Amino acid sequence: MSFKAKSASIVFYVSDIVRTEKFYTETFGLDLTRMEGAEPFWLSGTLEGGPDLVFFEMDGVRGNTPALVFTVDDGGIDDIVAALAEQGVTIVTPVSEAPGGWSADFLDPDGFGLGLWQSGELPRSLK
């Protein structure tokens, strides 16, 4: 099973979410929304004509963040991750809970980290 990426987010793991919020809103004029589901909160905003930017306060290793995360719009994240594994793709983080849904991380052929995110309102499997 494959999927067609329709949207993506760039996810940043930051050390100080309040400092990050101030920087991106005051320096870049981005409209960021405080979201619930992670402590203390997380930020989300969309660039005009571009991808979503998402910020979580958590430890991040340089090279692992920012990360490109594709949204699964039709459900079936478990099926997609299983198919990736069958194709020999390295799964770094299996499907696990994420704010608002489910996520999984994997590597492309050159070792770049990519991710999937799916709303919790959609079925994890379509089988």
Rank of each mutant, 00 (worst) to 15 (best):
T93D: 14
T93R: 14
P94M: 05
V95P: 04
V95D: 02
S96M: 15
S96E: 15
S96P: 08
S96A: 15
S96T: 15
S96Q: 15
E97N: 09
E97P: 11
E97A: 11
A98V: 10
A98D: 05
A98R: 08
A98E: 09
A98Q: 11
P99V: 09
P99D: 06
P99K: 09
P99L: 05
G100E: 08
G100S: 06
G100I: 04
G101P: 11
G101K: 09
G101N: 06
G101D: 09
S103F: 13
S103P: 07
S103L: 13
S103E: 14
S103A: 15
A104E: 05
D105R: 06
D105H: 05
D105C: 03
D105Y: 05
F106Q: 01
F106R: 00
F106K: 01
F106E: 01
F106V: 01
F106G: 01
F106H: 00
F106M: 00
L107P: 02
L107T: 08
L107F: 09
L107Y: 07
L107V: 05
L107M: 10
D108S: 01
D108L: 00
D108H: 00
D108G: 02
D108Q: 04
P109C: 02
P109S: 04
D110N: 15
D110R: 07
D110P: 03
D110Q: 15
D110W: 06
G111W: 00
G111A: 00
G111T: 00
G111F: 00
F112C: 03
F112R: 02
F112Y: 12
F112G: 00
G113P: 09
G113K: 12
G113I: 10
G113D: 07
G113A: 11
L114W: 10
L114M: 13
L114G: 09
G115N: 13
G115A: 12
G115Q: 11
G115V: 11
L116N: 08
L116G: 08
L116F: 13
L116D: 06
W117M: 06
W117P: 02
W117Q: 04
Q118D: 14
Q118K: 13
Q118Y: 15
Q118L: 15
Q118G: 15
S119N: 13
S119R: 13
S119M: 08
S119G: 13
S119K: 10
S119Q: 13
S119P: 12
S119L: 12
G120L: 10
G120K: 12
G120Q: 13
E121M: 12
E121V: 07
E121Y: 11
E121W: 07
E121T: 14
E121R: 15
E121I: 07
L122K: 15
L122R: 14
L122Q: 15
L122N: 12
P123Q: 09
R124D: 03
R124V: 01
R124C: 03
R124Y: 02
R124L: 09
R124Q: 03
